[in-house]
Design a protein around this nucleic acid. Structure first.
Length: 816
RNA sequence: GCCCAGAUGGCGGAAUUGGUAUACGCGCACGACUCAAAAUCGUGUCUCUUCGGGGAUGUGGGUUCGACUCCCACUCUGGGCACCA
């Protein structure tokens, strides 16, 4: 037998798979299908480290397994290549971002190819390819056509250093993700997508995703942040206007002792005449404007605000006159931008009331807290009691029974909510944390937004036949000083005729954010070379939705919500045939560096997969990353651990010399247990226990010193998804000419999985005192007889046990 | 501050979902082979013990014949959100 030479073997099979087009997906052949997808990478200049392929290895194992189970498998790969790093590299080196992207992709592809993935490279896509972004622009036009894309001058996050607008999604800890500068607020014209119109469906349909991890769905629920409550109007004394507030607690209306407006509230402009301390108010508003939300937070919990002098609100239920404040703890973009403050039952209102010495009026008491009969004889007593309770414990936030609320006293919260809202002609309504999505960037390296601005016709869509709107060549990649994109400087590109009236028009110079391309890429893989349509609907119907989607948990809320949003939109306009894009989702845990930190160039702790493949081979790397622990766990890389899987592979190699013609009877049970467990574990993404089961089987073979040929063949087949190169070589050595990856997954024989005799535990008063060998189906009295005849155990059964609990095949427990 | 997840040997982890805790791998120790080393193979490896047993799954309680698993309180770690009315 030749010694195991991973370099020779891996090169040989990678070349052969490529020449034979082994992984080319035929598809649409009436066969059952699995669409197995990785979140496609951004090809950065740093190349891959060993953490990146972990998820790709998992989907590789999974898709090879499903192919052996008889499924048509779609398992493609591509590149999410727009975005800031390539552009900043371009600014620095004055090379076109396309050049850097091409180079990085080549590097990534070379790194990936050495690991032996079964991607169908004929379907490779690249978001920066005009043939791809033509369709990203096409989807934008559809969104525009349906009124879901609009322009807005609302204040946006602005990085003074990069001179570009940033969505909330692009901020990290309040500073620009890119350059670290503090972000300011600035009004800019932006394109915005109405994702809020889909909030309820994005929320409700989470219930249909029963193969998604619960904690990711929980994060999305929180991100959408639906609150049920009521809108209630407070009239302003001696004025036409009213203030509309949103509250989740209309049952506490009688406890509202003042109102608070956000500093951005438009009423402040309309009421200018009446506000007597205009100067003070303006100063506060200016301060709030210059502060980012992060700065507000950095100031701590200390509440700030200003009383509006000269205006008073009228409480809609009591007709009492109450003061109005502005304070930056009330946010313009949430609810109605105004609140009724109930200091007795809200933490923030309470803190504010304490600071400004405002009345605290309790109107809710917990159920069963006091004897409510007292209320009838002494309302004052109850109020005093509630007052004291709040002084001692702070505001009471829960539901309960109303007090101090006129005719609505002594109602349950839920009942009071409806009745009080109706009494003041309020409206039961919902509000959402989810904000509409700022969808434009003043950047070069993104998809041009296909819109032409015309003085007479307004924003006019570029006709579909003129797509793609290609990114023009520019001199400079930097944003302009005014904050416009560098595209604005190219007169011959900007100035066009209006497609509507034929007059003079100007192209939109904003580009799309990096998220755009990744919102729908999984759809393009089904028909990546179609130039007539976004894809052939027949192919879409066959392959979609994605059956198994794998990627980092950091995408739980952004990418996964944006993609679901676009998918639902495409569903509504009959472009896709499913309401949800991803049926099953798994998040992959990080691989940390051996020192426990994140792998990063900065710490000098990066391990390049190329080196691992060179030294111990791709199969060892793959086996190690699957064996290292539960798939979703973050685990530190261990070079020692890698040694273990390399040893395992060498032992598998040596197993060839142990093969005999006849099956080894003693291995039958463990073999069939292994066939069953490995299959079940791959299906449920428990690759670590699948690996250990194969190791257990190998240990059993070594103990026997021999293995039957058929038994060995079955083992090679189940090994093949994990370590495809050595499996292929072993298969060839068994004189087969067709690839092992086209073999059928070996079926286990259920009758062989079960043992004739099992060892069960014997417990006396809850303590395990020994074990006995019995048939897994033995009746209780037979087991008791065996135990009472056991030399070691019979002494415990000298007295008759009070109780016997018997679980066949598992345990017998005696209570004395 | 709120939400989610987690805590098991020297290390990564396993545990049929309430039934013999520590599978599998790493590391370590000893032995075989060798002039020697590496590689390989074998044996051992939670802990205390008076050798009868006792104690251990972050801490303290509880439910149960029986708890890593369920319940209550707490500590710590990781992730997410952050003045959301």
């Amino acid at each position: 037998m030749k010694p195991y030479d991973h370099k020779e073997i891996e090169k040989k099979w990678q070349d052969r798979w490529a020449t034979d087009n082994l992984y080319k997906t035929e598809g649409e052949v009436g066969q059952k299908k699995k669409y197995v997808l990785d979140m496609f990478p951004y090809p950065s200049g740093e190349g891959l480290h060993v953490g990146h392929p972990k998820g790709y290895i998992a989907t590789d194992v999974y898709s090879r397994f499903q192919r052996m189970k008889g499924y048509a498998v779609l398992h493609p790969m591509g590149w999410d290549a727009f975005g800031l790093p390539a552009e900043n590299y371009a600014i620095k080196t004055k090379t076109h971002p396309r050049i850097a992207v091409e180079k990085n992709i080549a590097r990534y592809k070379s790194q990936l190819s050495k690991i032996g993935f079964n991607y169908d490279w004929s379907r490779e896509i690249n978001t920066t390819d005009p043939e791809y972004y033509k369709w990203t622009q096409w989807i934008f036009l559809k969104l525009f056509e349906k009124g879901l894309a609009y322009q807005s001058f609302e204040p946006i996050n602005w990085c003074p250093s990069c001179q570009t607008g940033l969505a909330n999604e692009d901020l990290e800890g309040g500073v620009c993700e890119r350059c670290g500068s503090a972000v300011e607020q600035k009004a800019m014209r932006q394109w915005v997508l109405k994702i809020r119109e889909y909030a309820d469906r994005l929320l409700d349909d989470l219930e249909t995703l029963d193969k998604w991890p619960e904690h990711i769905k929980e994060m999305q629920r929180h991100w959408i942040g639906k609150s049920e409550g009521a809108e209630i109007e407070f009239k302003i004394k001696d004025q036409e206007q009213a203030i509309k507030v949103f509250t989740t607690r209309p049952d506490t209306l009688y406890g509202a002792t003042y109102l608070v407006l956000s500093p951005e509230h438009t009423l402040l402009d309309t009421l200018r005449e009446s506000i007597q301390n205009q100067k003070e108010v303006n100063t506060y508003r200016e301060q709030a404007k210059s502060k980012s939300e992060i700065e507000r937070v950095a100031e701590g919990k200390e509440k700030t605000g200003v009383l509006l002098e000269g205006v008073l609100a009228v409480h809609p239920a009591t007709q009492e006159e109450i003061p109005i404040y502005i304070a930056d703890y009330v946010l313009a973009h949430y609810g109605t931008g105004a609140i009724m403050a109930v200091p007795a039952h809200d933490e923030r209102d309470f803190a504010f009331a304490k600071k400004f010495n405002l009345p605290v009026k309790p109107v809710i008491l917990p159920d069963g807290f006091v004897d409510f009969d007292l209320f009838i004889e002494s309302q004052e007593k109850i109020e005093a009691f509630a007052q004291k309770h709040i002084e001692k414990h702070g505001p009471y936030l829960g539901n309960g029974k109303t007090i101090n609320s006129d005719t609505f006293s002594l109602l349950e919260s839920s009942d009071a909510k409806k009745k009080i809202t109706a009494f003041v002609s309020g409206k039961i309504t919902n509000t959402y944390r989810l904000q509409d999505w700022v969808f434009s960037r003043q950047r070069y390296w993104g998809e041009p937004i296909p819109i032409i601005h015309c003085d007479t016709c307004g924003a006019v869509p570029v006709p579909e036949k003129d797509l793609p709107v290609r990114l023009p060549e520019v001199e400079h990649y930097e944003p302009t000083g005014t904050g416009e994109s560098p595209l604005a400087g190219i007169a011959e590109w900007v100035n066009v005729t209006c497609p509507h009236c034929g007059g003079g028009g100007k192209r939109e110079t904003n580009t799309m954010p990096q998220w755009a391309g990744s919102c729908w890429y999984y759809l393009r893989y089904v028909d990546p070379h179609n130039n007539e349509k976004i894809f052939d609907p027949k192919r879409e119907k066959y392959w979609n939705p994605v059956d198994v989607y794998v990627g980092g948990a950091e995408h739980a809320t952004r990418h996964l919500i944006y993609a679901r949003f676009w998918h639902k939109f495409l569903y509504d306009i009959n472009v896709v045939s499913s309401a949800e894009p991803f049926t099953e989702l798994h998040s992959v845990g990080l691989i940390e560096a051996e020192d426990g930190r994140k792998m990063s160039k900065r710490w000098g702790n990066v391990i390049n997969p190329d080196d691992i493949v060179e030294n111990v081979g791709a199969d060892s790397l793959r086996a190690y990353e699957m064996f290292m622990g539960p798939f979703e766990n973050a685990i530190a890389w261990s070079t020692n651990g890698l040694v273990g899987t390399r040893r395992f592979i060498e032992k598998v190699w040596r197993m060839q010399t142990l093969v005999t013609d006849a099956p080894v009877e003693a291995l039958e049970t463990i073999l069939h247990q292994t066939l069953k467990k490995v299959g079940d574990d791959i299906e449920s993404f428990k690759f670590n226990t699948a690996m250990s089961q194969m190791m257990i089987f190998l240990n059993a073979v070594e103990k026997e010193g021999t293995i039957g040929r058929e038994q060995f063949e079955a083992f090679v087949k189940i090994l093949a998804p994990f370590t495809p190169h050595i499996a292929e070589e072993l298969w060839e050595n068994l004189s087969y000419t067709q690839s092992v990856h086209l073999e059928e997954w070996p079926k286990h024989d259920e009758s062989k999985v079960v043992l004739d005799e099992v060892e069960i535990a014997v417990q006396i008063d809850g303590k395990t005192r020994g074990t006995v060998l019995v048939s897994p189906t033995a009746p209780e009295d037979e087991v008791i007889t065996i135990v009472s005849n056991n030399e070691k155990l019979k002494k415990y059964l000298e007295t008759l046990p009070k109780k016997v609990i018997y679980r066949a095949g598992k345990i017998i427990s005696f209570v004395l």
